[in-house]
């Protein structure tokens, strides 16, 4: 999650953007969705965290937070749209809970929020009705579903490290200790990187050139 340093250090900041991004990241970490989700929190309208290019962007105001949704950088850039203004912390989180779960519920496979939003009949207004006015009567259900995900979070690596059975797969060869002999690196600017095909003839076949 991207954030700027916020009111704690910055003379322009009006809210604690790092604090909010910690709350949001810790709340939604591990949540699986139809596609990846990017977040950012900016501490003022100068927008150093570039929240308007994210799926969920939060920008601090004098009175609270402005919420932007369905932005995208990457291949097909799209500005996020202003979804709600001057929210307090609790309402902000409630809207994001509902928004994310509604997206997860209705999006197509591998569909980013920006494309989902463009295909949504009724557009932004409809989305606002569902999320803010609860026009479908779903809000409570969506929040509960999100709360379940939050409550059952577990670090996948911490979980796997405790179970030798799960680690069994992490072997290059099940019947041999060696690494993959076809992986070659070369040094560049003080670090190693994969060797290009044209560089391979320089490398002794049997050992890594390190």
């Amino acid at each position: 999650m991207k954030s700027c340093v916020g009111s704690t250090w910055c003379r322009y900041g009006v809210q604690d953007s790092v604090g909010m991004s910690l709350v949001l990241e810790n709340r939604y970490k591990g949540l699986r969705s139809p596609h990846k989700l990017k977040f950012a929190v900016s501490g003022c309208t100068r927008e150093c965290a570039e929240a308007q290019s994210k799926d969920v962007g939060v920008i601090a105001t004098d009175k609270g937070w402005n919420l932007y949704v369905c932005g995208n950088g990457g291949m097909r850039p799209r500005h996020a749209e202003l979804f709600a203004t001057d929210l307090d912390d609790k309402t902000l989180i409630r809207y994001i809970d509902r928004f994310l779960m509604f997206y997860i519920r209705t999006a197509d496979k591998l569909q980013r929020t920006s494309v989902w939003r463009e295909s949504l009949e009724g557009g932004l207004e409809y989305l606002k009705e569902v999320i803010i006015d609860d026009s479908l009567g779903l809000a409570e259900e969506l929040e509960a579903q999100m709360q379940h995900v939050v409550d059952t979070y577990e670090c996948e690596w911490a979980n796997a490290l405790q179970d030798p059975e799960k680690l069994k797969r992490f072997r290059t060869f099940v019947n041999d200790e060696r690494g993959d002999p076809d992986i070659h690196f070369v040094k560049e600017r003080g670090q190693r990187r994969p060797a290009r095909a044209s560089e391979l003839h320089l490398i002794p076949v049997t050992e890594e050139a390190l």
């Binding site: 699986r32 969705s33 990846k36 977040f39 690596w157 911490a158």
Partner: peptide, 19 residues
């Protein structure tokens, strides 16, 4: 196993919350 005391997984590999 060397990282886990300090940091947790970032889910950068998943279709999930990143960045």
């Amino acid at each position: 196993s060397e990282l886990i005391e300090a940091v947790r997984t970032g889910h950068a590999y998943g279709k999930s919350v990143r960045t």
